[in-house]
Amino acid sequence: SFNTVDEWLEAIKMGQYKESFANAGFTSFDVVSQMMMEDILRVGVTLAGHQKKILNSIQVMRAQMN
């Protein structure tokens, strides 16, 4: 498990989005775990492969939080 959203993004090789997530207010796992595709688009993730990777990881995160 990760301590910060930045660490999580690095771990899934999506570190290039750290600033975008932070600027959009997605700075805690409570918020990130609620993200939908529209949120991912809003933070500027436009590549389908990256969207899928982030969404898949969020689903895993949700499962671990319950």
Results as ranks from 00 to 15, higher is better:
F2P: 07
N3G: 12
N3S: 13
N3L: 10
N3A: 15
T4F: 07
V5R: 01
D6N: 11
D6H: 07
E7K: 07
E7I: 06
W8A: 00
W8V: 01
L9P: 00
L9N: 01
L9F: 03
A11T: 10
I12S: 03
I12E: 04
K13G: 15
K13R: 11
M14Y: 03
G15C: 06
G15M: 05
Q16W: 05
Q16V: 11
Y17P: 01
Y17F: 04
E19F: 09
S20F: 07
F21I: 02
F21M: 04
A22H: 12
A22Q: 12
N23H: 11
A24H: 14
A24M: 09
G25N: 05
G25L: 04
G25D: 04
F26T: 02
F26P: 00
F26N: 02
T27M: 07
T27V: 10
T27D: 08
S28G: 07
S28K: 06
S28I: 04
F29P: 04
D30I: 11
D30P: 08
V31T: 13
V32L: 05
S33M: 14
Q34Y: 09
Q34A: 10
M35W: 03
M35T: 01
M35Y: 00
M36W: 07
M37H: 10
E38V: 12
E38R: 11
E38K: 11
E38P: 10
E38S: 12
D39W: 04
D39E: 05
D39M: 03
L41P: 02
L41D: 05
L41M: 12
R42K: 11
V43M: 07
V43K: 00
V43T: 06
V43A: 14
G44P: 05
G44Y: 02
V45Q: 00
T46H: 11
T46E: 08
T46S: 09
T46V: 13
L47M: 10
L47H: 14
A48P: 15
G49R: 13
H50M: 04
H50V: 02
Q51I: 13
Q51P: 03
Q51M: 08
Q51D: 02
K52C: 13
K52L: 13
K53R: 14
K53S: 09
K53H: 15
I54A: 01
I54Q: 00
I54R: 00
I54H: 00
I54C: 02
N56K: 12
N56A: 14
S57N: 06
I58C: 04
I58Q: 01
I58S: 01
Q59G: 09
Q59S: 10
V60H: 14
V60D: 10
R62D: 05
R62N: 11
A63N: 14
A63T: 11
A63K: 11
Q64N: 12
Q64C: 13
Q64S: 12
Q64K: 09
N66P: 08
